[in-house]
Design a protein around this nucleic acid. Structure first.
Lengths: 127, 127
DNA sequence: GTTCTAGTACGAGTTGAGTCGAACTTAGCA
DNA sequence: TGCTAAGTTCGACTCAACTCGTACTAGAAC
């Protein structure tokens, strides 16, 4: 079952197995900047990615292709990199796959309420 | 006294005198889009404007020059217009002055918690 | 009237971001 | 060994946005 929007701000800890691959380079929690995070979320495609990861990830990492976005791979790489460098997602390498999840704990700690807004977001009606 | 960051999300109503000049064109509350609002706030100068208006406005409108930003007038016009068209501020014409205030009620209603993040924002250290 | 002033409008220069194709890298597998 | 698949890297293109100077408009005060 997808996480409810009302529970996301309550997430403060996520126990993780200890034998995961190391995360790709990312900003430390203290380095997160509100203007950078908001800028990363102002792109509709990236907002969609974070929204979907938040609501349907069930605490598992997902590869870039999991979202079913119909864009060239180089475009997706660009947006995932932007999200990771802004501090919104964490990425780990599993063999060929690079899996991502939202940095819920860090973001709730630094910007309480932000992820609730993303979770409550409604994508614009398709044309 | 400036509004506390902890009270901003509680603001749901602001009684206003009935004889104010009409607001300049702005999006209706139902038309506010999260991605647009976040994009407007992702510019450091605009984030600074909204932050300062929030914390020091004391429910009064303020002219563009009030913030003491050292930029050409045409640049300020550009950013105030961007904020108004994104739905973040309301502007009214008082003679020669165009005064602005944050649309606290509308934004709290549509994006609860967002203004608290802006109020809690700390400007980057001056170089 | 004239002058001053707050702010807009317009246009140009520059920069940065999004988009994408093509070539490349690497892990897994037959 | 070679093939396939996931994703990156690079470069080029386009377009939107930021910046700002100049000219302009409109209210206020004299």
């Amino acid at each position: 079952m997808p996480s409810s929007a009302h529970t996301i701000s309550a997430v403060r800890e996520l126990p993780e197995p200890a034998d995961l691959p190391a995360p790709l380079p990312e900003p430390a929690p203290a380095e997160l900047r509100l203007e950078t995070v908001l800028g990363a979320l102002s792109d509709p495609l990236r907002l969609f990615i974070v929204h979907k990861l938040l609501l349907e990830s069930e605490r598992f990492d997902h590869p870039c292709s999991w979202l079913g976005i119909d864009r060239p791979k180089s475009s997706l790489t660009h947006h995932y990199k932007a999200l990771r460098e802004a501090g919104l997602i964490r990425q780990r390498q599993y063999g060929l796959e690079r899996r991502s999840h939202v940095r819920v704990v860090d973001l709730n700690d630094r910007f309480p309420g932000l992820l609730d807004l993303v979770a409550a977001w409604e994508p614009p009606a398709a044309p």
